[in-house]
Amino acid sequence: MNASQILGRWRSPLISLLLVLPLGVWRPELGKSALLLLGENILMVMGILPPVFILLGLFDTWVPRERVAPHMGDGSGAKGTVLSVLLGACSAGPLYIAFPVAEVMLRKGTSLRNVFVFIGAWSTMRIPMILFEIQNLGAVFGLTRYCVSLVGILLMALLLDRLLDAAEKKRIVARFQAE
């Protein structure tokens, strides 16, 4: 890998650094605590990532498309949707870890709509998080938000599926079918 490739790959953290640098210069003491937090966050994420990616890699090579597609693909109906919600709700970790998982799901023939349901459920319906939310903000707040979010997730996945034209959908799915 040459220097320009490395630079291209690291473009987004560099841009972020340029964004936050002035803040750090403006209030150095807050910048310092941000750096400490960054260290903690990196340790935490780097702690979860290795097993997640190992499991994804194993799933990708061992589980054939034919085993997943009928349950979660086009035409899997309500069962596919329920499975996608459960998968998302039982997950752990921040939303950005959901994207590589979604990639493997797409590659195994999960429908785009169900992948969006999964992403939505991951973002707002994770079970450890709702328990924590109830603890802090009360059952009425937490449970109402949870139920309203579920309705929203299903609606949004349906709408996304409708609003994206066939060519765009094909492009998204095709990107992950390369190998």
Partner: peptide, 10 residues
């Protein structure tokens, strides 16, 4: 991830 974590922390 680095980019995201940087923004989170700040």
């Amino acid at each position: 991830f680095f980019a995201v974590l940087l923004l989170v922390s700040f």
